[in-house]
Amino acid sequence: MRKLFVPTTFTFALMACSPGSGDVNVNTYGEDYIEVEIPAAATPDEEGFIDGFTVTYSKFLIALSSVHLHSADGVEGGEMTEQKIFDMHQKGPTPVHQFRGLEAEHYDEVSIEVGPAKGATAGNAAPTDVALMNDGGYSVYATGNIMTGTTSVEFAWGFTTNTRYQECEDAEGAAGVVVPNGGTAQIQFTVHGDHFFYDDLQSPDTKLRARAIFAADADRDGEVTLAELGAVDLTTLPTGQYGTGGDGSVENLQQFVTDLSRTLVHFQGEGECKVVKQ
């Protein structure tokens, strides 16, 4: 004879008080702009470079760490403490971390850090690329080419910026992540490869341009380096381009793209995080 489960008042009380538990899967994704190409805009109103260039990444390494979930009312979700290197040029989305058995809760404070690699391990990056990041102390390292017509220049830029992306909200303004009882929530830290080619650090009307960066190859060796970008004073570029918004200390193209290296990570596609320089 089967035993019938007869809930008692005590059991009901327990059920009412316990929020249960759930999981969170965290992944990262470079989207088509990093995996395939950033195209030229067919018309000025369409997405892509307005000056006719295209950019293709061959490698886009990023050091992710300190993924942290907690709620404003003090519930600690968890933290991925190790640092991992991901190559966003590989097809994604790519798993970053799994949080298991978290209290079912709205974790409205979600954050992640992109900092200089030190003892980092592979996310999906090749061992040689992990070594490259650790040896150089890079947080972001991107290689690729910038093309117009049949002419192109290569680039290989490493950045040691240390940036925390916190208080992340999705594109609708919903903060963090809701962990359902008995279910699995998804977090995606989306990396936007087009940001390196913004022509303004703050304007809502920023455009994608590559002409000035392409032309910075002063020694005409087919590679535009960060040092060559540093030799391009913004005051030598046309007005209306490369505005520095709230950061008046940015005076050349190297400083400009370095600032942009702090804006790459988004939340759940087009969502935003508060960007904090470390």
Partner: peptide, 12 residues
């Protein structure tokens, strides 16, 4: 407050 997972192409 509902989580909306958006996976799409990055746009300027």
């Amino acid at each position: 407050r509902l989580l909306g997972l958006v996976i799409g192409t990055a746009y300027a």
